[in-house]
Amino acid sequence: MPGSPALDVSGLTVRYGDTVAVHDLDLTIPTGQTVALLGANGAGKSSVVNAVLGLLNPAAGSVRLLGRTPQDAVRAGCVGAMLQHGGLPSEARVGEVLGLVRRSFPTAWPLDDLVVTAGIDGLLDRPVEALSGGQRQRVLLALALAGAPPLLLLDEPTSAMDVEGRRAFWTTMRGLAGSGHTVVFATHHLEEADAVADRVVVVAHGRVVADGSTAQVKAHVAGRTISFTAAPDRGLDCLPAVTGVTRQGATVTLATADADATLRALLADGGLPDLEVRGATLEDAVLSLISTVTHQTIGAAR
């Protein structure tokens, strides 16, 4: 439907018996964005993805994909998915599986271009059982792209890939986003989210607790860290504004609420070899947000 968001979730609630996995969650994603869903295990990310794909019936709320219900969107080839526990049929070759899936769509991605885009050149004649973990993920990506879907949903897509494979995968995702596809992915690799996502949505206890650019999410964490090389006997705990001290070999890392005040005191006390000052990472911000919400939830339950 022209002008419709790629994904529009309103009041989504998912229950498993007495357990509430997702609670009254709202999320709207315009077309063309690359969005990372972040959160700890059990936060509700996979339940959101499964509800969006129509794989479970929510207890409440509505989900629309490009103006369609999940079932209609999937049937029309509007959405492609890589699930965390996705599998491939045994006793088949990659080309046979890919051909079967492509034939199920009214408009399939041209095979030669699909092979190049998914990075599976040379794998079409290979038995599924002979694929490495990274190769399986690449084949699953090809299956997700087979219908040329405008919306991609990826649940831990690089979990079985090595560093080189992950880098190549996200190069592919950036290319797809640049050509107008909407990419929504759940991941535990926060450095990937920081590098490729236009927008980050942090989920904790089934609720959205932060939503914005990586810079906006990082801004939730005040303070900076100061790292440098120091002798073991150098006293650091009583420095101004220092909130934490960690040592790894000769390297000391100070968490500080006022980097200028801490640095002035350090410089007055001696040199600072290998000095590095940085703001909060995305991992720092996500862990802080999850910790805050967890403490609030526990407090409310008492």
Rank of each mutant, 00 (worst) to 15 (best):
T172E: 13
P150M: 03
V14S: 04
G95T: 12
D198I: 02
I29T: 03
P110I: 00
A92F: 15
A219W: 00
A193T: 04
A257K: 06
R174G: 01
L37H: 09
V286Q: 06
L55E: 10
R278V: 08
L7M: 07
D269W: 13
R166L: 00
S46Q: 07
A168P: 01
L140P: 04
D121F: 09
T243W: 15
E191K: 00
R302I: 07
R15N: 09
G206S: 09
A195E: 12
A215Y: 15
A168G: 01
N41P: 07
N50P: 01
L123G: 13
V48M: 00
G147M: 01
A241G: 03
G77T: 11
L153P: 07
R199N: 09
L88V: 05
P150C: 07
L153D: 09
V9S: 07
N50L: 10
L55R: 10
A186N: 12
P157I: 04
L239M: 02
G223I: 03
A222L: 11
R174H: 10
A36E: 13
F228M: 03
A81W: 05
F105H: 00
A230E: 14
R167D: 13
R138D: 07
A160F: 05
S213V: 10
A51T: 04
S288T: 13
G133A: 06
G271E: 15
D121P: 04
D194I: 00
E96Q: 14
Q135R: 08
F185Y: 10
M82D: 14
T13N: 08
G249H: 00
V20A: 05
A81L: 06
A241Y: 08
G11V: 11
L143V: 11
T28E: 12
R207I: 11
T182R: 05
P150Q: 02
H220S: 11
A60M: 13
D112M: 02
L27S: 06
L55F: 12
D260C: 13
L27E: 13
G95S: 03
H295I: 12
L38G: 04
S132E: 14
L145Y: 01
A108V: 03
V200Y: 06
A261I: 00
H188S: 14
Q248F: 02
A210H: 03
V128D: 10
L124H: 08
R234A: 14
G86H: 01
H220W: 00
V9F: 07
Q33T: 05
Q135E: 15
Q71H: 09
G212M: 00
V139N: 02
V184Y: 07
A118H: 14
L65E: 06
T281P: 13
L154P: 01
